[in-house]
């Protein structure tokens, strides 16, 4: 929808974009499944934040048709993605490629879980040691007041 708003806003001079009716591209059932799997991973470039599967923007429809043609000609998903990346850059991929730039993105969260669990374990172990060593000490009011007055 956001796209429709955009398209119409651009149409202000009263001329409208032409949509050429293109011949239908028939797909086999497997190809349909391939296409359905592929489209959510591809970003509509003119929309705010929608995939080609969702968008109805004219450019998205053109690209969808293009991708459909590529699927029909038997291209694999990596080939089709490369075709689009060659033209529009990595921005077109909703699933960012795994490369040195994105190592942190893909691995970061799982590294963080491990780190957090490690810290948690150490915390628990030290808490038992401390608990055995000392009873809780009340907060020293006078010292705090001194700190605040400074």
């Amino acid at each position: 929808m956001a796209v429709l708003l955009l398209a119409l806003a651009m149409a202000a001079p009263a001329f409208a974009q032409v949509t050429v009716e293109k011949p239908a591209i028939p797909l086999t059932a497997e190809q349909e499944a391939h296409l359905a799997e592929l489209l959510p991973d591809l970003r509509c470039l003119v929309c705010q934040n929608e995939s080609l599967a969702e968008s109805r923007a004219p450019l998205a429809l053109d690209l969808k048709y293009e991708v459909r043609g590529l699927v029909a000609s038997g291209k694999s998903s990596p080939e089709i993605k490369q075709y689009l990346v060659d033209r529009y850059g990595d921005f077109v991929l909703f699933r960012p490629p795994f490369d040195p730039r994105t190592w942190l993105l893909w691995l970061g969260p799982f590294a963080l879980v491990l780190l957090a669990l490690l810290v948690l374990m150490r915390q628990i172990r030290s808490s038992r040691r401390d608990a055995a060593a000392a009873a809780p000490k009340p907060v020293d009011d006078a010292a705090l007041k001194k700190l605040l007055d400074e």
Partner: peptide, 14 residues
């Protein structure tokens, strides 16, 4: 470029 194919080849998005 009536059907926008050349646009796609040039990576035109707007």
């Amino acid at each position: 470029d009536l059907d926008g194919r050349a646009g796609i080849d040039f990576g035109v998005y707007g």
